[in-house]
């Protein structure tokens, strides 16, 4: 075990898997010599060489499209989008070529697309988005979103080993803020939910950076026992874990950092409404970013992103319901 930041854990997962499997390569803009905009692949090119740590042209469609081609002839590419926002430029290749390939032709496309996502540091409208729901609506693509250092490494390894296209949402605001004990060597984290804190009176369902917001908001909430469920994987969605927690606590608050309409939490709410209606003792409540671009100026950004205070307030209301 070693203590690592979330960012170091992502690097460690990538590095371990590249050592273990010659088929694994990383590719993206400025990831080689420069080591990546956030330094996730710092030092990789020295260890693995430029054919496996590939600096690419500035072409997101090109990155995803060529990764697909490399995957179907036997490699396991890990593509980096410098910011998750840029996947909009590679959307067609991911959604139409990679996502539909196995269903159409029985041909697997084992690619991992790293998507540094999320706001909280004045990145503005094009460096702060949480585009995960775009891919939840696209059949054939898995979507994972670690919140801890341990899961960041384990999910990276699982994503690479998965024979399908996997969008790996890595939250930029967790990169250096979150640290934790990370097991040595290689281990896989399953694409299932994790109970981040057990509780009996209220369930908060969330993922990514909002797991930490939820934990902080309910650490000492007038002595209430609040369960925090960290989804970890959005596709597949661990409906059993969601329903088990809701059946235990009977009250549920869903927190998304993504824009509200059709966010991952909307699907969670629908699952609960369909399958746990009789178990509820209060309205399914959602907190999410309103349907606006993420603004640049700190007071504006803080006004839209879900905050510890907003979660506290909503949790208190639900507990009192």
């Amino acid at each position: 075990m070693a203590t690592m930041t979330y960012l170091q854990a992502i690097s460690d997962g990538l590095r371990q898997e590249m050592r273990a499997d010659q088929r694994v390569m990383v590719m993206g803009e400025d990831i080689g010599v420069f080591g990546g905009a956030f330094k996730v692949t710092d030092g990789f090119i020295a260890e693995f060489g430029p054919d496996r740590v590939m600096d690419t042209p500035l072409a997101e469609s090109g990155i995803v499209g060529t990764a697909i081609g490399a995957a179907v002839v036997g490699l396991r590419p890990v593509c980096e989008m410098q910011f998750s926002d840029f996947i909009a430029c590679g959307f067609d290749q991911l959604v139409n070529v990679a996502g539909k390939m196995h269903y159409r032709q029985g041909l697997a496309v084992p690619i991992t697309v790293r998507l540094p996502s999320g706001g909280g540091f004045s990145g503005g409208p094009f460096h702060s988005q949480n585009p995960e729901a775009w891919f939840m609506q696209s059949p054939g693509i898995k979507v994972v979103a670690p919140s801890t250092a341990e899961d960041a490494k384990g999910l990276m390894i699982s994503a690479i080993r998965d024979p399908n296209p996997v969008c790996y949402m890595e939250h930029k605001h967790l990169y250096r803020r979150i640290k934790g004990e990370v097991p040595d060597g290689i281990y896989e984290t399953p694409f299932t939910a994790r109970v981040a804190r057990e509780g009996t009176e209220l369930t908060i369902v969330t993922y990514g950076a909002m797991v930490h917001t939820a934990l902080e908001a309910t650490e000492d909430l007038d002595g209430a026992s609040v369960e925090v469920l960290d989804l970890r994987s959005l596709v597949p969605l661990d409906t059993e874990a969601i329903l088990a927690s809701v059946r235990k606590t009977s009250k549920v608050l869903i927190v998304d950092e993504a824009n509200r309409t059709c966010a991952a939490g909307a699907e969670v709410a629908a699952v609960i409404a369909e399958h746990a209606f009789e178990d509820l003792d209060g309205p399914v409540t959602r907190i999410a970013t309103p349907d606006v671009p993420i603004p640049f100026s700190p007071p504006l950004e803080q006004a839209v992103l879900p905050s510890v205070d907003r979660v506290k307030e909503a949790a208190r209301e639900l507990l009192a319901y």
Binding site: G62, G65, T66, I68, G69, A71, V72, G74, Q93
Partner: peptide
């Protein structure tokens, strides 16, 4: 792009 990726591999 897919063909280009095959050639890249």
């Amino acid at each position: 792009l897919v063909a280009t990726g095959m050639a890249m591999a």
